[in-house]
């Protein structure tokens, strides 16, 4: 098994683990971590496809960089929404106890 094939297979495995996490986990933070694991799996497959012995294909590297930025944006948005829901719940709980 060559090195890049090993990376690809591990990438697919990570992707599978991530999908499992997204589907099964109930907690929003767990789901988000799982989505990020999926992302890393995809990035590994991309990086492995850039490896051609001596020469390296820069296009997948650029795609991964773009993908990371998009992942940051998506994660931040989900965190923001989750925290706002939590804040609403707390305010509601605070009002009902008063």
């Amino acid at each position: 098994m060559t090195q890049d094939l090993l990376y690809s297979v591990v990438g697919v495995a990570l992707f599978g683990i991530g999908v499992f996490g997204v589907v099964v986990a109930a907690h929003v933070i767990r789901k988000l971590i799982a989505v990020n694991i999926m992302g890393i799996g995809v990035f590994m497959v991309l990086l492995a496809s850039a490896h051609h012995g001596a020469i390296t294909d820069p296009v997948p590297h650029a795609m991964v960089l773009t993908g990371i930025v998009v992942a940051v944006a998506g994660t931040a948005q989900c965190l923001w929404l989750a925290l706002r829901i939590q804040l609403l719940d707390e305010n509601e709980a605070g009002e009902s106890t008063q």
Binding site: S49, H52, I55, D57, P58
Partner: peptide, 8 residues
């Protein structure tokens, strides 16, 4: 795998 992609 497609060799060598767009590297060249």
């Amino acid at each position: 795998k497609a060799v060598p992609g767009l590297a060249d």
